[in-house]
Design a protein around this nucleic acid. Structure first.
Lengths: 117, 117
DNA sequence: TAAAATTATGAACAGTTGTTCAAATATGTG
DNA sequence: CACATATTTGAACAACTGTTCATAATTTTA
């Protein structure tokens, strides 16, 4: 068999797609995580934080949302550990926690840019 | 300046995180795509299709959902081009369209498995 | 053609989500 | 302390989502 004909499935994580159908619990965790990325305003907040660390007020102005709405969304992003923050005086400065968001964006972009068959 | 202090942002896609805050339209497209991955039953369907091509009925039994619910969800997955299908007799066989779903799963898993700071 | 099998579709309904608004909390300043 | 500033929180409400149920559409078989 030639190498180019080796069509085995990619083996990547611990369980998907190897060990069978995802358990309800694991599927739930995945869905909760991706669900957080299922809101346009949260993407705008993340893309703003990719530019630089920002306070809640700055962020609200940057993405044209109310400070309350931004604060609510930041809590969601904190829960999924997508952002971290530091307090300084009266302000709270938020920034992206790690690079995973870039990779997810890239992967989704490539998928969305694929031509139809 | 030492290399370890070079904190330039990673440059990955065409616009994020480089050219500023995502437009409402781009953020919307991202959110729509990730929102599709924000449901546990859709993850179970995708993980089942990662094992092998399956008809709607097989799929329904595999993930323990009604055939109608599976059919509804398959339409959502088709809309986002995550699955493709072929008709054979009375049955319709679905399979994963490309590898992006594996990469997204892996990236999310790594994020979720990261220890808290 | 009639009946069975398979999938798709539409309406309806419960559950979830994201915003707004008002109020609370926390920190800095005069 | 009183006041202003910055952020968070909770309730309420409209909008959205995913399932169920009934029905339609399609294909095979008797």
């Amino acid at each position: 068999m030639s190498d180019s004909e080796n069509k085995t499935l990619p083996v990547i994580g611990r369980d998907f797609p190897v060990s069978g159908i995802l358990s309800i619990e694991k599927a739930q965790r995945m869905a909760e995580f991706f669900g957080v990325l299922g809101d346009p305003n949260r993407w705008r907040i993340l893309s703003a934080l990719a530019l630089k660390e920002m306070s809640v007020g700055e962020l609200a102005e940057a993405v044209e949302m109310s400070e309350s709405a931004v604060s609510h969304q930041l809590r969601v992003l904190r829960t999924m550990r997508l952002v971290s923050y530091r307090k300084q005086g009266r302000s709270v400065f938020y920034c992206l926690k790690d690079d995973h968001i870039f990779n997810l964006y890239q992967e989704a972009s490539e998928h969305l840019d694929e031509p139809d068959d």
